[in-house]
Design a protein around this nucleic acid. Sequence first.
DNA 1: TTGACATGAAACCAAAAGGTTTTATATACT
DNA 2: AGTATATAAAACCTTTTGGTTTCATGTCAA
Lengths: 110, 110
Amino acid sequence: MSAAQKHDVFQAIADPTRREILKLLSEKELPISEITSHFPMSRTAVAKHLHILSEAELVRGRKVGREKRFRLHPEPLSELHEWLSYYEQFWTNRLSILKHVVESQAKNEE
Amino acid sequence: MSAAQKHDVFQAIADPTRREILKLLSEKELPISEITSHFPMSRTAVAKHLHILSEAELVRGRKVGREKRFRLHPEPLSELHEWLSYYEQFWTNRLSILKHVVESQAKNEE
DNA sequence: TTGACATGAAACCAAAAGGTTTTATATACT
DNA sequence: AGTATATAAAACCTTTTGGTTTCATGTCAA
């Protein structure tokens, strides 16, 4: 551990543009300018989003010639997964309860 | 569906205070003032966080006498779960790691 | 009914977020 | 060498966020 990382995974994925960027990069490594072509905003704005994603370690960039290519680095999503798994007990239970209700309702109507 | 909901699940969980509130409410239904006692901030600030969580449908409040008690409403987390499941293939699947290796190998040999 | 309690609502504020434009630097091409 | 490309970095702007304080309202309890 080192750099006082300003943005964490939770913040990083809060923005819809950043989530779209992650989606794009999940398919293919891409340079900034090409990523930008998918959005109605300036290259600078996209670069800032990439910077935030980098801080959260969700993407990694490497210089290739004059361009910088980014690719997905999904590992930090495991933190999100862990966080979420705590709550799954609550909503999966509820869903299964609901399922029960619906099923017994259906039975009554037979 | 009705109210143009200003905050979604992703934004709602982006803030650490709000995540702590969810944790608290996962254990027990609680009124605002009691939730507030767990944080170094004013009751008003906590109430605002609860409002944001309500907009995202992650909590629900009911009036009981003069207090308003909130409880967890975890269902919307399923959206997060769905989003995340798309990325799980990238970090949990050994085959995808192998795929990565093979592909980059193939690339090097072009 | 009077006072204490629990919340709601409004006005205000500083800092962060999400953009922009402008200027600079490194690499590639001819 | 000179020009076009790809990015970096900085200054600036507006809106949102996360907090505060103040005042009003509804409910409980004596």
